[in-house]
Write a protein that binds this DNA or RNA. Structure first.
Lengths: 340, 340
DNA sequence: CTGTTAGCGCGTTCAT
DNA sequence: ATGAACGCGCTAACAG
């Protein structure tokens, strides 16, 4: 592994000249540039990024923490992140947290120990660990919340997301306008603000229509297929089986429909199902899913832009970037069956 | 940001002692250990991983290169990789290549420049760039092929995958046994061995049944939904519309079914559709998908294990780890309609 | 424009 | 068991 020193020696210049060439080839004399280029070719030299990063005190890595890499919505957000990251030669490091939630302090340690320059939280749960007392002068690490605010503690962090309350309210209203009154809600991960917000929107719409959801109509689904299956079952065993089910994401809606079908029910004839996210599966599901579209890719792009501004020194305070959402009506929702 | 020096000063010991404590807390005297621990707590010290890596000459990162992060099959492989990586404190860096294929040399540079300790190629295309002449003594970087062999040039690389030829042959045979004779194949990415292998399996089964596929029955789908849509269209416009379509992955099968439905055809009554991968969507699709199951998670685990062995010095040669596959019959395939 | 020098934080000899 | 000193590869300050 040739180092900058080998190149310098071979080219007959100092290592500083080579270093300058690397930073800006135009900054050295033509004559030397030619020799350096030749030496680089001859030695097969590639700069040691480890050393570069060490010297610069930065990693060029943004860490993305999310509950579930498999969710197509998150995937699309990640794509947006990766796209703008790539332009600026950042890499992104994915960390799937699933249930082992880290505290904010642990995330800070990650940045402080230079594993990453900053952290993007995608709808992940941060337990309510009170920030440890830090020695004075410890700058907090750049942390940006993508998609959703999570625990209340994070509410003051910079974020890029849609207005979940409003979106969930619109979704519920759509069902209401169709004539449904027995509307259930399969929520997300216990304790996440994302869930709280969407549930709040659901409850608000119901309240506005003068309906009080029965006990058992709001059930946790963990944003996963497995969770949604169990939730759907419990809904079907409810004394008042709902005529419409609003799922907090598409993933659950797909599993919900599958489960309904397995129970001999047809969608939307017997039960309407509504999703959230508008992932690429929403349109190909049978029946195609009525859902709330989020601009996933753009959310990712905005998040990473904000992150880079934060890394590169700008204090971005607690800026919150609210992105637009959109109700997409397809075929999984319809008027309730007569008699409902 | 406190450094090891600050801790040493506060504890009244040398930095070497602190360094030893970090490597093995038992290796220093009780008295000193207590003082070091206290000093670490007081300063809020966390080792600078950038410096550690620089010193050790390794990144602790494995780079995963794949064409499409959104594909649930790859996602599951990545999960397997990440799982075993995490146990050994490796991180994984995802690089989506889409169409901008890198040459093997460029991958080598990535490792040589210490962006990563090794590279895992997941069904990505490597263009046929002849390896650049390297100065003597340049060790080749650890590269492992997960899932599929890609270009013929990579055939000699260590790999973890199923027997794609055999699997595709079984899939096709299943259709044949049902009574189909007009069987089409929507293949993957042009130029990838993965495609070649599955196509070879398809052709072998057809040949064995004494059928020669018509021109236009084998059409590229790029492994994406968009590609599959177009491919399905072209199949429907074929003078001899097939009675069964074998898709090289589930993603395409799902889009294919959706497209068929949009054209007023029903699956499997009018046309049978067969997938490949058995992702988690396969079971919830309507109708549930007949497909070939690959042990995605295990493929990921094996791949990462192999990678770690390679990084940690063992020469693993061109070891190939063939994993088992399984035909999963669900409801998207059936006997052809009468008259076919 | 170029070379010399210092030092980033850590692991690792060598002494002691 | 511990401390002093060196160097990993590179960039940045300064002097020329």
């Amino acid at each position: 592994m040739p180092s900058i020193k080998d190149v310098a020696k071979l080219a007959g210049v100092s290592i500083a000249t080579v270093s300058r060439y690397l930073a800006d080839p135009e900054s050295i004399r033509n004559k030397n540039r030619a020799r350096v280029e030749q030496a680089i070719a001859d030695t097969g030299y590639a700069p040691n990024i480890l050393a570069q990063n060490f010297r610069r005190g930065r990693t060029g890595i943004a860490m993305v923490v999310l509950p579930n890499v498999g969710d197509p919505f998150f995937t699309e957000v990640m794509r947006g992140i990766a796209e703008v990251a790539g332009e600026k030669h950042y890499s992104i490091l994915i960390r799937e947290t699933e249930m082992n939630t880290l505290s904010l302090d642990e995330y800070s340690d990650i940045v402080l120990s230079k594993q990453a320059d900053g952290i993007i939280l995608l709808a992940s749960i941060c337990p309510v660990t009170p920030p440890r007392d830090r020695p004075s002068g410890a700058r907090s690490a750049p942390i940006i919340v993508g998609c959703e605010n999570v625990t209340p503690e994070l509410a003051r962090l910079p974020a890029v997301r849609i207005d979940n309350v409003a979106a969930a309210r619109e979704a519920t209203s759509h069902l209401l306008e169709l004539g449904h009154r027995k509307i259930a809600f399969i929520s997300g991960v216990e304790g996440s603000e994302l869930t709280v917000d969407r549930e709040r929107g659901y409850l608000a719409a119901m309240a506005q229509a003068g309906i009080e959801p029965l006990d058992g109509w709001v059930v946790g689904g963990n944003l996963t297929m497995e969770g949604a299956r169990a939730a759907t079952h419990s809904l079907l065993e409810h004394p008042q089986v709902p005529s419409a089910i609003f799922c907090a994401n598409d993933e659950m809606a797909i599993a919900c429909i599958s489960e309904l079908r397995a129970s001999g029910l047809s969608v939307p004839t017997d039960i309407s199902v509504m999703g959230f996210d508008d992932t690429r599966y929403a349109a190909v599901t049978q029946p195609p899913l009525t859902t709330i579209a989020q601009p996933a890719h753009e959310i990712g792009e905005h998040t990473m832009h904000m992150m880079m501004r934060a890394i590169e020194g700008g204090d971005i305070g607690a800026e919150v970037d609210i992105m637009p959402h959109r109700l997409v009506i397809r075929e999984s929702t319809a008027k309730p069956a007569a008699g409902e």
